[in-house]
Design a binder for these strands. Structure first.
Length: 424
RNA sequence: GGAGAGUUGGCAGAGUGGUAAUGCAGCGGAUUGCUAAUCCGUCAUCAUGAAAAUGAUGCACAGGUUCGAGUCCUGUACUCUCCGCCA
């Protein structure tokens, strides 16, 4: 969410951003409510002030005066309570509208209304050519007995899968490779639960925007997070950090759950879109400085690219346009991996800068060394590695004529020295 | 699942219904000058104000009792101790 002071002073910029991001929010109404809340609060505060003054007098008052004070104080209290009652619905509406206010995107972000207007900013790696008939990942999995699709779906529902044999070994090697890399880059690596309370989802901004894409466990008031970001972001909720603590860099590993409610009939085949997967997520809290945030953005993007390069998977970097980036984002770059079996690039990573939008919701602040002032921090996140989706690109790119899959050099130590898996 | 004890500022830590002590750290200022000490102020949010300042709110969270709640009551979350169950 934005600073209300900024909205008061720049309503036109906010309106323009809403249009660019294809969001609807009545800014004039928000400002009207803001004004009204302040008016009522002033009246309420005047009553409370009266009551406080009377309370102060109370212990030293004569018995008759005490009775008088009781009466006066009660009146003020009741008056204040009625103002508070009046405020309640206004504040609720204010809060929910504030939650919808958008971060003003970076000036160089492409303007557009849907993902069709995203811009490819660079392509890295060479697409492989095959002198045999190439297979897609499902065919490769069948051939090598790497997947349990049918039985698992019957037990666990659609979009679930069991990963078997050497493909599981590969999956785990990829996690380990990524965790090790991020550790050497200075990240605090941490496995985090997927279960969390509702609050954490509001903090990140997943709620109220994406309510339908999250699994809930009503009996225990818990929800299943679709990304470790939800948990990592709330670790410092309410904290006032020291500037010298920043940047805080977490690499979280967790099972991730997504209902995929809006994706009925889409990507139903194979590993592309499943309800449960595992992910290493990069998450950063840095000081409130756009240049610093941009630097961090490039850093976490670079980390993800390095993994892709060392895995020898061709990919492209997308500049997501305003209409595809979500309310909170200042800048967003997806990484899409080349998947020869589908003859297209598929999203495997999503790198986002949110400035203070998320930190305001979560109440993550820090004390500036020089001034002693308390400021909202900036937050960023990017995928480190998401399996099994990245396995699709991995095995399709590295497949051989006999159905085996070669293991790039960098990963061989994590695979017990194997140079290939599967095949005859 | 059962029983008990807790949760107070960046940190530590008092506070048994009447203005949230005190210490440390940070920031601002004063003073003295050998790398520091001492003193004063400030130290979360909001409103009014050019500012100084003034006022309101803030003691895990949400309610309640009361003229008045950190303090009493109810619910929730978490932490610790013990019992039970358990990979």
């Amino acid at each position: 969410m934005l600073d209300i002071k900024f909205i008061r002073e720049n309503p036109d910029i906010v309106k323009k951003t809403l249009a660019e991001k294809c969001l609807t929010l009545d800014v004039d109404e928000l400002l009207a409510i803001d004004k009204k809340i302040i008016q009522i609060k002033q009246l309420m505060e005047a009553e409370l002030q009266k009551r406080n003054a009377l309370s102060k007098e109370m212990p030293k008052a004569s018995p008759e005066r005490k009775e008088e004070i009781k009466e006066l104080s009660k009146n003020s209290g009741q008056q204040a309570a009625s103002y508070a009652e009046e405020l309640k619905p206004l504040e609720e509406q204010f809060k929910s509208m504030m939650g919808m206010t958008p971060t003003i995107p970076a000036p160089d972000v492409p303007r557009g209304t849907s993902e069709d207007e995203n811009v490819v900013i660079r392509q890295v790696g060479e697409k492989p050519t095959f002198d045999f008939e190439l297979k897609d990942h499902v065919e490769l999995m069948d051939l090598n007995n790497w997947g349990e699709f049918k039985k698992i779906s019957q037990i666990c529902g659609s979009r679930t899968v069991g990963i078997k044999g050497e493909l599981l070994q590969l999956e785990m090697a990829l996690w380990q490779f990524t965790i090790n890399k991020l550790m050497t880059k200075g990240f605090t690596v941490m496995s985090v639960p997927s279960l969390s309370f509702e609050n954490a989802f509001y903090h990140t901004g997943h709620f109220p925007f994406d309510y339908d894409s999250v699994y809930s466990i009503p009996k225990d008031n818990l929800y299943l997070a679709g990304t470790a970001e939800v948990i990592l972001n709330s670790i410092h909720a309410g904290d006032i950090l020291k500037e010298s603590d920043l940047p805080i860099m977490y690499a979280g590993f967790s099972p991730c759950f997504r209902r995929e409610a809006g994706a009925a009939g889409k990507d139903t085949r194979g590993l592309i879109r499943v309800h449960q997967f595992s992910k290493v997520e990069q998450y950063i809290i840095c000081k409130a400085d756009v240049a610093e945030s941009d630097k961090m953005h490039q850093f976490i993007l670079q980390n993800a690219e390095e993994v892709m390069q060392e895995m020898e998977i061709p990919y492209q970097i997308i500049a997501n346009c305003t209409g595809d980036m979500g309310a909170g984002k200042y800048r967003m770059n997806d990484i899409e991996a080349w998947c020869p079996g589908q003859n297209q690039y598929r999203e495997t990573h999503s790198c986002s800068s949110l400035l203070d939008w998320q930190a305001r919701r979560t109440n993550i602040r820090y004390r500036e060394d020089e001034t002693g002032k308390v400021k909202y921090a900036y937050t960023l996140n990017n995928t480190g590695l998401a399996t099994p989706r990245v396995l699709v690109a991995f095995i399709e790119n590295h497949q051989q004529a006999d159905g085996s899959v070669r293991i790039p050099k960098a990963l061989q130590p994590y695979m017990g020295g194997k140079t290939k898996i599967g095949g005859k």
